[in-house]
Design a protein around this nucleic acid. Structure first.
Lengths: 152, 152
DNA sequence: ACTAAGTGTTTGACATATCAAACAACTGTC
DNA sequence: GACAGTTGTTTGATATGTCAAACACTTAGT
């Protein structure tokens, strides 16, 4: 069974995923552009580390830089990060709303797994989260059962 | 937000988790004892890599070796791996039974996240899986809604 | 204009996880 | 008992992700 080795056959490492997310989030304030320093600050790592990480993201065509060293997501990078942001949101909603995990723990767990789930799992998880949000009697009953077992 | 950096503040890396699981699983056939070669074969990596990985697991007191170089989980290692095996089972059941993810994809996704979820999330996920297995009318109705949305 | 601060890069270091190849020590077979 | 195969370890290599420190360049303050 060699499934476990496919871990790093992911498109994105944990580190790369968060660098891209940082560029994306910082960019919303500046028309898509972000600076190395701000990325470093946001991720809590040094400018040097970001500089090196961006090197390979540029090489992979996921980010671009202009003559003033401002950094921006490429179309390919934007596509990846959009997908990632959707997964992040779904996982977080699921953990908090459906499972009832405390927000802080949901943040920690979600952060670790958001970029690892497949398209398929994401779709199904999103569907489940939507269904569980409904307020018909059947759903309410299931939610109630779920709550009762919380003293685990 | 520095939550993301806690990724490797995990007790266990992906690699360490799978080495421990391998010792555990191989051990069931031999009274708890496993050999480096068998671990390597099971994980699909070289004996050398396993040898090095075991070095640090020994140093951390998670596995022990006897005079014939047979490897065994320590009590601490066994405790960790028992917990891990439970998470693995829960995540897999959830993905397959509740989400309806195909078994192979569930294997891939589950393998990536099983060792990353917290105790809390595991408990809640287990509860959800149990609740969704029930065959009362309310649960059936929710499962039906879930299925209807599968054409995503 | 000068100085101080901030910015991006590079370098050398370390840790993890892997490989291939070489090695020494058993195990088995004839 | 000798030779072949298997086993566990070590070594040197590679790749990623991080750090601190040094460097050069730009920006601001006065």
């Amino acid at each position: 069974m060699e499934t476990w080795k496919k871990f790093d056959a992911n498109e994105l490492t944990h580190s790369a995923a968060h660098h891209l997310l940082a560029v994306y989030e910082l960019g919303t304030d500046y028309n898509g552009w972000a600076r190395v320093s701000d990325i470093a600050r946001q991720l809590g790592i040094t400018r040097g580390s970001v500089s090196i990480a961006l090197r390979s993201l540029k090489a992979r065509g996921l980010v671009t830089a202009d003559e003033h060293r401002m950094v921006k997501l490429s179309p390919a990078g934007l596509e990846i990060v959009t997908d990632l942001a959707a997964k992040k949101a779904t996982v977080k909603s699921f953990l908090i709303e459906v499972l009832g995990v405390p927000a802080e723990q949901a943040e920690i767990d979600g952060c670790k797994i958001e970029h690892l789930i497949s398209r398929h799992t994401h779709d199904r998880l999103q569907r489940l989260t939507e269904v569980m949000r409904a307020s018909d009697e059947a759903t309410k009953a299931v939610r109630a059962k779920l709550r009762n077992g919380s003293s685990h």
